[in-house]
Write a protein that binds this DNA or RNA. Structure first.
Lengths: 147, 147
DNA sequence: TATTGTTATACTCTATAACTATA
DNA sequence: TATAGTTATAGAGTATAACAATA
């Protein structure tokens, strides 16, 4: 479907979002590096810290090829942050599970992600609520009071 | 400076921003791939399409090492999208300049970046204005009517 | 046969260090 | 000597294709 072709207000918002993306991304990479992780390793570890899952699921979540996950989990496993465990029900599957140390690293990583938390301090609670609801609608998340 | 440590509303907004970042980033890479460019090549070409600049300046804008730019510009040049030109005032400097074809590719790339433009159609003009002003304040851009 | 994970391969991006040619 | 760009090198991420083990 064709989208409205470039009214100035929309373009301005798009550019602002681009700035947010660049800043957020850079801070994420830097926070990962602080914990001696690459961005991809940090994303996998963060994902697994929420829920252990088979290798293939990780690739689906990260929208990349499954073969890439092998190497990333290899490096996390070599550092003792993640383990591969057999799935009792299907011996083809290997579950990637964070270790205690991996969980700790994931938590510290999350805590060090100040971005958007510090800038958000500029906004009042009411303004944050407005921002939240606008972002939700942009992203197609169902509205607070709608079905 | 310590930031407020995790009120639920702020965390929710941070997570929403994370979702925006992931979606925007994925769409940018995909749009670049549509034009047979990598993300890095697309970023360099987009930058040069606004203003030709010395190799070193590109590295500063992209926050990476200058040695990386050599290869990226090599590949853009091999495809006829960018040229290296001598700087008349300082023979150490090489200016990276997009060709006509490079400018066309950059324009089409920008036009194909529907993200945030399509989702923004969900919002009214008034809501987009509110979103714009909130993002500006978050990013520390001076407010519309403030010094 | 289909699926899961891995390996092998090739390309790109990245940082580091050493090199060249200018200034 | 200092700076701009390059080269050389090594590590990591990525996609593709082929493979072993299991279903």
């Amino acid at each position: 479907m064709a989208t409205s072709p470039a009214d100035p207000l929309t373009l301005e918002v798009v550019e602002l979002i681009g700035t947010v993306v660049a800043r957020y991304y850079a801070e994420y990479e830097q926070a990962a590096a602080t914990h001696a992780l690459t961005g991809a390793q940090a994303r996998v570890l963060g994902l697994l810290s929420l829920e252990p899952m088979p290798m293939r699921h990780i690739a689906q979540k990260l929208k990349c090829e499954p073969s890439n996950i092998t190497g990333i989990v290899d490096r996390l496993e070599a550092r003792g942050l993640v383990e591969r465990r057999p799935d009792p029900n299907d011996r083809r599957i290997k579950l990637a599970v964070p270790t205690e140390e991996g969980l700790g690293t994931a938590r510290r990583l999350r805590d060090s992600l100040d971005f958007a938390r510090e800038p958000l301090a500029e906004l009042s609670a009411q303004e944050r609520t407005v921002l939240r609801d606008l972002l939700k609608r942009m992203l197609g998340v169902e509205a607070p009071g709608a079905p």
